[in-house]
């Protein structure tokens, strides 16, 4: 197995930075690190599992209804993920709200099923799904960490900037409120794309 081929989505073929897929949710759930990590995990699981299942049954799927079959499988997985989040990490599931349900419309997932899982055996499809989910997740985590640090001076809800630095406590520091709103996520993703393009050689 050619491992390099599967590592593409992590950098060279990154779903967000290069293919510009799944940007909507990347902007919406990255105000803090925690929801960004949970969202990244959810998308990775859904992407890997849907790739795996579709690849298992790929030879039995009638081509005329293949989009319907894919939607049913992806939707079922997304609902399961949503139910699990509500049961085990209720706070975060509330923060992610509709965006878990909207994983189903994430272009990365349908894109990988169409482009890869329908034509490849289950195990490579599973790895492809994992790699794409992680490529997406890496960007989410970077943007989430930067936004949370500058918007509230914390990471994973741990206060990193000492309370005494803040203006209201007689210090000099102010949180950057701009970071907490989605437009700033767009700018950050833009900057990431710029850095990524200028440091990665074009194939």
């Amino acid at each position: 197995m050619n491992i390099k081929k599967y590592l593409g989505p992590l950098s060279k073929d990154n779903p967000i930075l290069v293919q510009v897929l799944g940007v909507c949710s990347a902007l919406a759930v990255t105000a803090q690190l925690k929801p960004a990590v949970v969202m990244a995990l959810s998308v990775t699981i859904v992407c890997a599992m849907s790739n795996f299942v579709i690849s298992l049954i790929r030879n039995t799927i009638p081509p005329r209804i293949r989009i319907i079959v894919q939607l049913i499988i992806v939707a079922a997985l997304v609902i399961v993920v949503d139910l699990v989040l509500q049961a085990y990490v209720y706070d975060i599931s509330k923060m992610l709200s509709v965006f878990v349900g909207l994983i189903i419309t994430n272009c990365i997932i349908m894109g990988r099923i169409e482009a890869f899982a329908l034509g490849n055996p289950p195990i490579p499809s599973l790895i492809d799904g994992l790699a794409n989910g992680m490529g997406y997740g890496a960007v989410l985590v970077i943007v989430g960490a930067v936004r949370e640090f500058f918007a509230s001076g914390s990471l994973w809800n741990y206060q990193l900037i000492p309370e005494s630095w803040y203006v209201e406590n007689g210090g000099f520091y102010l949180n950057n409120g701009l970071m907490s709103i989605p437009p700033m996520a767009l700018i950050l993703v833009g900057l990431l794309v710029w850095i990524h393009r200028s440091t990665t050689k074009q194939a």
Binding site: P62, I65, I72, A76, I79, V80, L83, V84, Q86, A87
Partner: peptide, 30 residues
């Protein structure tokens, strides 16, 4: 095609029902 999609929907529906019912107590507690 008809049989395929009917069976698939049934299987998925059963799996989702099982997941929903088994996770309900935890969600209620939350």
């Amino acid at each position: 095609i008809f049989i395929y999609i009917s069976v698939l929907v049934l299987v998925v529906a059963v799996l989702l029902s099982v997941a929903a019912v088994s996770l309900k107590p935890l969600q209620k507690e939350n």
